[in-house]
Design a protein around this nucleic acid. Structure first.
Length: 409
RNA sequence: GGCGGGGUAGCCAAGUGGUAAGGUCGCGGUCUGCAAAACCGCUAUUCGCGGGUUCGAUUCCCGCCCCCGCCUCCA
């Protein structure tokens, strides 16, 4: 599998930002790029193999070559404003992805149209002619100085790195039209081949039931959520547990639920690890959870049915906990389950390592153990409260006291 | 208005023409000095609303309502 994520590092906003900051475009976009990578790391999102950027000269060259091809084929033309536009009337499939009938399109009035220069209101820019607003930003082309249009960069970078035909193209539903529609038109207009086999469009993130927006005051950054004490993996779990095609409503209750669910997984793993390390007299019973309609893999194979997959995980957790309660899990079968978890977590990436217990914490724990042996409940409860206050939880089991870090780890 | 995605228990959410996974919360129990964790039990005669098809529909068909998104130079 070859994964590519395109980075648009030139557009109206970045040009304006760089101009206002009086710094080169590249210098202006660099911190945003860095922040983006920090965020995907926080969310444990696996890095793509490539992160091509639109301003990379090799891709600019490719965009220019593609535009030239489109002009040669009559699919594009240079208008009086010197910009080059895609001629959508020459591409019958345009609008197919979004199920749009171009003759029935209505303008929302959201964008202003420079209708004079274009043959059709729906024609979109492939190459934008330079104007004063662009300042130092621009590249030479057969059609004069300018910059790439808003969609051609994706076609150029995708076909450069993945070939003319790609298996899966992801993106938000809001990008179906016009962005993905334009990508298809440009790419297939150049190659004559089917550009994308499967489109995976994810639904929107809502906050408190409404679209996230600064004016509604329900706008959160990743940093805001981290500041509330939630960890990256908790956020990851909260965002992940809903099917990608269904809108996800972000709430603080949802974050709390994510934390509790992860705690359940953590406790199960801790138990399994102890079990696998023990010299146990348990009679092995490593049978797989049966009688369930799906396995974890089958659920994900079914259009990434994460809810069914997680359902299977939690049913498995209950079954093995039950078996451990009955003393039916020996080290060998515990390892079977731990290995199974490794496979599951290679996809989910929600596990966390075992905690190292600081010296002062284990000292308090030992003191509590002593108090319990002396049946000094008052003192042992005080020490338990003290440990809780420091973020550690105590559990008294048959095998003695266990301490674990809870919440936000 | 057109197109697309949603509407399932307090909340989140899967699912199927044959009678509702899972998570979370709450309540009761086992265990425990008390807890915690785990386990057991309880919590939707019902799947937005109204018709229809069917022996039977939440699942199929028709109509309607509500929410979210898109409808061309913001990517």
């Amino acid at each position: 599998m070859h994964r590519v994520m395109n980075i648009t590092d030139v557009d109206d906003k970045t040009i304006r930002g760089a101009r206002e900051a009086k710094i080169p475009l590249r210098e202006f976009t660099a911190p945003f790029k860095q922040a983006f990578f920090n965020d995907i790391d926080t969310l444990r999102i696996k890095r793509a193999d490539d992160f091509p950027t639109a301003t990379d000269q090799q891709y600019i060259d490719r965009m220019i070559a593609m535009i030239a091809t489109l002009i040669t084929r009559g699919l594009a033309y240079q208008a009086d404003d010197k910009s080059v536009y895609f001629r959508i009337n020459k591409f019958p499939d345009y609008g197919k992805l979004a199920h749009f009938d171009l003759t029935q399109l209505q303008s929302t009035g959201r964008v202003k149209h420079d209708e004079y220069d274009k043959e059709h209101i729906g024609d979109f820019a492939l190459w934008k002619a330079w104007d004063e607003e662009d300042g130092a930003v621009g590249w030479e082309s057969p059609w004069g100085r300018g910059r790439p249009g808003w969609h051609i960069e994706c076609s150029a970078m995708a076909t450069a790195l993945l070939g003319d035909e790609i298996d899966i193209h992801c993106g938000g539903v809001d990008n179906i039209f016009p962005h993905h529609e334009a990508e298809i038109a440009q790419s297939e207009g150049c190659t004559g081949k089917k550009f994308v086999r499967y489109w995976l469009h994810c639904a929107h993130l809502l906050v408190d039931g409404q679209k996230m927006s600064k004016s509604l005051g329900n706008f959160y950054t990743l940093a805001d959520v981290l500041e509330k004490g939630y960890t990256g993996r908790e956020i990851r779990y909260a965002l992940m547990r809903v099917h990608y095609r269904a809108p996800l409503n972000f709430t603080w209750d949802g974050m709390e639920e994510a934390r509790q669910s992860l705690g359940r997984i953590d406790d199960w793993l801790m138990r399994l690890r102890e079990c696998s390390a023990s010299v146990s007299l348990a009679k092995g019973n490593g049978r797989q959870a049966g009688s369930l309609p799906y396995t974890f893999e089958e659920a994900l194979d079914d259009d990434l049915n994460i809810s069914a997959a997680l359902g299977f995980l939690f049913e498995t957790i209950r079954e093995t906990n039950r078996a451990m309660d009955r003393g039916e899990v020996d080290p060998a079968s515990a390892n079977v389950w731990l290995n199974w978890w490794e496979r599951v977590d290679s996809v989910l990436a929600i596990g966390h390592g075992e905690d190292e217990i600081p010296a002062e914490i284990s000292q308090l724990a030992r003191a509590r153990e002593q108090a319990r042996l002396a049946k000094d409940w008052r003192k042992s409860d005080e020490l338990r409260n003290e440990l809780n206050a420091r973020g550690w939880e105590t559990r008294d089991t048959k095998d003695g006291q266990k301490i674990t870090r809870r919440a936000g780890t």
